[in-house]
Amino acid sequence: PTKAAVLPLVKKDGLPEIAHKIIDDLKWDFNVVYDEKDAVGRRYRRQDAAGTPFCITVDHQTLEDQTVTIRHRDTMQQKRIAIATVNDTIANEVGIRHWLKKTE
């Protein structure tokens, strides 16, 4: 099942490129989708209907501080997190053990 959807707020200003980088990182551990069609509210509803537990929104603040908004479908809570922590955040929330791909 799809665990996350990555949604750039708009289709310009470099936001889709950042969204695709996030997808490229997450796709190794989770089933993820990219969606840029329609307004972000409609995309949230579409992902809710599909059962996607997390929506990750890339917006203009992302360009400034490398953070994204992550929204949890079940609680509707949204919070800003660093792009570097997205993978671990999803892994912790879905209750799977996440193995870091680091060489020692």
Rank of each mutant, 00 (worst) to 15 (best):
P1W: 03
A4Y: 02
A5G: 08
A5M: 08
L7A: 00
V10W: 06
V10K: 15
V10S: 13
K11G: 15
L15H: 03
P16E: 07
A19I: 02
K21P: 00
I22H: 04
D24Y: 04
D25R: 12
L26M: 01
D29C: 02
F30V: 03
Y34C: 02
D35F: 02
D35T: 03
E36S: 14
K37D: 13
D38P: 04
G41W: 00
G41H: 01
Y44N: 07
R45F: 09
R45L: 11
Q47G: 06
A49M: 13
A50P: 05
T52V: 15
T52Q: 03
P53H: 08
F54N: 01
C55R: 00
T57H: 01
T57E: 01
V58N: 03
V58S: 02
L63Y: 02
D65K: 04
T67P: 01
H72T: 13
R73P: 06
D74C: 03
T75K: 06
Q77M: 12
R80F: 08
R80A: 04
I81C: 10
I81M: 11
T85F: 12
V86F: 10
N87W: 12
E93L: 15
E93F: 06
I96H: 01
I96A: 04
I96C: 02
I96F: 06
W99P: 02
W99G: 09
L100G: 11
K101R: 14
K102R: 12
E104D: 13
